[in-house]
Nucleic acid binder design. Structure first.
Lengths: 120, 120
DNA sequence: TGAACATATGAATACTTGTTCATATATACA
DNA sequence: TGTATATATGAACAAGTATTCATATGTTCA
């Protein structure tokens, strides 16, 4: 039984208590929203967006990605780690070379929706 | 006529030049990818995700949002400004009260795709 | 007009994060 | 086994950002 008024953080009055209660009932659990923000945080960096977009075309090794983006191997490697931790990319080893590829089929749709917003 | 080799930033060799050139040809223009990352950066904060999710249910005034999220009116106001600048929300004034609502119909789909990724 | 309320905003602070640099790990090959 | 190459990673630094605090703006109503 959570109460709208159990807070002292808001320095103004609740104007529409019915609305607040109604919306509160419909909100997903805190953790889901946190995870969602964390996912978008991963998409919120130009380098990572470029890497993901590159992998739409084909799997690539770290050196190729670095050359494509005109970036340091180290910088790319750091970003790939973040992408892998978020289960957005996976990798396979072939000798010395490690190939990265997409590990998710929602990314392209999410990106397309995002581009729709930008282009409208 | 851009050349893969005009860079000195990559401290390793290009292994698959054909792949790099092919992917480079398919990459969207730099600016689009930048804008896309900027958009996701806006989604990459728990407070803003919560605000947007709340507005899926109904339009709300600033005080109500602050009460719902147990946050300062000021903090909410700052975030609403960012959301408005990104054309994700709009507002209308009714006397002293300002009501915010969604200004984009891609958001819900983007969020749903994101949740699909998290839940799989 | 002045008090009360809703909202906006600038400055400061604490925290997060992307890149660099140096170096470690791992594999191939002579 | 030793060297070269591909990749990973820890530490440090610079740049960005969310919240807080104080205050300003704008509207209503007595």
């Amino acid at each position: 039984m959570s109460n709208v008024h159990d807070s002292d953080r808001c320095d103004c009055n609740v104007i529409h208590e019915d609305v607040v209660l109604n919306v509160k009932a419909k909100m997903p659990e805190e953790e889901k929203l946190y995870d969602l923000a964390e996912l978008f945080k991963v998409f919120g960096d130009t380098t990572r967006v470029k890497i993901l977009y590159a992998l739409f075309s084909s799997e690539m090794c770290v050196c190729d990605i670095a050359a494509l983006l005109n970036m340091t191997q180290s910088a790319v490697s750091h970003q790939l780690r973040i992408l892998k931790q978020s289960r957005l990319v996976k990798n396979r080893r072939d000798g010395k070379v490690i190939y990265y590829s997409l590990d998710d089929n929602h990314i392209q749709q999410i990106f397309n929706q995002g581009l729709d917003h930008i282009n409208e």
